[in-house]
Structures are given as structure tokens and as C-alpha cells.
Design a protein around this nucleic acid. Sequence first.
DNA 1: CGAGGCCTTGACCGCGGTCAATGCCCGTGG
DNA 2: CCACGGGCATTGACCGCGGTCAAGGCCTCG
Lengths: 188, 188
Amino acid sequence: MFNQLKGLLKYITDFDEQQLTEITKHFKPKSVKKNALLLSQGQVCTEFYFIEKGCIRTYFIDKEGNEKTRYVMCNPSIGTALTSFISKKPSFEFIEALEDTELLVISHADFYKLNNQITQWKVFYQRVLEMAYSFQNKKIEGLVTLTAKQRYDLLLKENPALIQRLSNKILASYLDVRQETLSRLKSK
Amino acid sequence: MFNQLKGLLKYITDFDEQQLTEITKHFKPKSVKKNALLLSQGQVCTEFYFIEKGCIRTYFIDKEGNEKTRYVMCNPSIGTALTSFISKKPSFEFIEALEDTELLVISHADFYKLNNQITQWKVFYQRVLEMAYSFQNKKIEGLVTLTAKQRYDLLLKENPALIQRLSNKILASYLDVRQETLSRLKSK
DNA sequence: CGAGGCCTTGACCGCGGTCAATGCCCGTGG
DNA sequence: CCACGGGCATTGACCGCGGTCAAGGCCTCG
């Protein structure tokens, strides 16, 4: 059951087998149906996810009522609504399943328990934060230097599978364009 | 000499006095004149800075030759070109002094030596990453939900001192607008 | 079947970028 | 000390990307 998770953890930080067993003990399975919310705006995010199968996203809704997708996680992957998870404050973001999804969940409490118990877990968490930071950084670079078309083309080059997998509505909000604009971009 | 730095470290993570002494041993003073570069594009960033006095920024230059300022650090503050510092890869960003500036510098090697020696330093580094992540996240939110005028007004509300301290050229690139546009925004 | 959501296409518009001219400030050297 | 030059700031005219609004078609699911 935990083989996929163990593989990913090992890939990120070199845990030994004993540590992996200790760590994965804290992960519980969870299933969600397509369109279900794992977290609503205003709730504190107390879970960190590993996606075994399926696909989830984090997004928020701006003042005009438009959805803005920050991040999409497809299997196998890890993540959560990081800002709320870190700060323990109510989340600005929603977490939503984009498909029927199988998760492994570790609670905030257990996550930080591991942070005290296992030195390597601290290093793991550092890596997670570093990756999250780098991703956000790249996103900003794209937003400030590229046109809508260029952002689409870049994603098409770097992650074509994602374009296939997501609906235009979600994809548009991920690229930060209107659905209508994305439709026009695709038809070129 | 290290009092300011110790105060900031303590504010971020609760080190005891002995740890602070051990930590600050690794920081060396450095002075740079206005407009001097601490890091060029293509170099690997091997220093992490505490700003005692003055002001520095990180920025990059896009394909059209426009400067894009990612982050501005005014005394007292800490930071570096984080992406390169983390990955040890050549930096996409420059680091530049915006004023005559007094720094305390810790090398990449010493930074990670502390990461192994002092457990609390790992926590400190986590905090630094968390703050950097949150900052980038807020920046993205601003870019995708606010107009140029709204971003300016927000900064005016949250950090008016920065607007006073920076030239319009730097401020414009920080807000991601042209200098001409910022000039028009200010005159309203 | 029908209803509601998603996708596409068209017409229009406004924010902010681009280009250009002018003025201002300040550091440098004669 | 003043003259000059270069960078920064301001203002105007223009334009294009991408948002907005609206209509019509399609697919899915009850």
C-alpha cells in the first residue's frame, strides 16, 4: 500500500527503510469523488496529502468571483494548501478533487511530530519548501515576462499531459487567462 | 556588532545565547557601494546576507531587456538569491545594492554546516523558506487579481516607506509596470 | 428527453505597454 | 565654478493583448 509513497519520499530525501516504515505509519487512506472539496476557504488546513491516483488542485476565488488555480497535483505527488498548513491560519485557498482520487493523508500534528522525532524529516520538509518556493518563483517569472500564448506554449512543451488531463476551464484559470482566450489560443 | 543580527535571529526562532554566539561567529562584515553587484546572472550564489544598514534587491532581466525586481531588502533584514543558493546552480537573478550598504555575510558552506550542527538552525531555515514562500504567494495573488493601480495602492498602504525609499525606476519594476505607467499612477 | 454547464466564436473596449519629445537632476571634468 | 552629458521622470499619442459580454452549439447526467 505504501510503496508508491515510500518511493517518492526516498526520491526527495534519503530515508532508510526503518524511517520509511515509521513515517508511513502516520499516513491514512482517503478517497474523494470528483469535484469534492478537501478544504474550503476559511478552514484551517490540517492535512498534507500524497496522491496515489487521481488529481487535485488548490485555487482561490477573487473579488470578481473568478477562480484562480495555484497548483495542480496529479499522481504520484505530494502537497497541500501550504500557506494555511504552515501558519495554521484559515485558508484563502480551496482544495478540490479534479477526478475521483485516492489519497494518503498525514495530519498536521503528526507531520510536525515527525519534524521533532526524525532529523531527516526536517530535511525532507526543507526540500518540500524549497520545491514549493522554486515553483512559485517560476510562476511569477512566467506571469511577468510571457504573454498568454507563450505561457500556454511553455506548458505544452513542459507538461503536455496536464493540458490533456485538465478541462479548459481549469487550465485557463491555471494559466491565468479567461476561458474564451484559452479557446482562441488553442485554435492556433 | 552582532546585536542587530542576534535580535532578528531570535525573533525568527528561539535560539539561546550560546547558540547565537556560535551562529554569529560565521558572519563576516562586508560593505558595498550603491549600484554595486553582489551577484551577477550566471554566478552561483554562495552567500546569505543580513542587512545592517542600507538596502539591496534581487532582479532579473527578461528577453526584451527589462529589469524585473523580485525582492527588496532594507535594514534590518535577511535574504539572498534563494533559488541559486538552494540549488547551487547559476543564478538567473542579480543582487544589487540600492544604497551604500553594510552587510553581514554567511557562506553557503557555513550555512549548511550549521544546518547539520544545530537542530534549531534547521527550524530557522524552515522559517526562512516558509516566509519566502508566503511572500511569493502573495505576490502572485497580487499579479493575478489586482490592476497596476491597485498594486500600487496596496504597497502604499502596507509599506509606504518603501515607496519613499526607492526610485521610480526600481519601484516600477518591483510592481511590474513600466516607469511611465507608475508615473501616471502616482499623479492621481 | 430537457436542463445546466462547458466550449467556441464574434464584436467591442480598456488597461497598460510602446515610442517619442522634453525637462530635470546630479555627478564629472575642464 | 560652470558646462556638459547621461540617466531618470514626466507627458502625450497611439495601439494591441486579452478581458467582457452575448449568442449559439454541444455534451453529460438525471
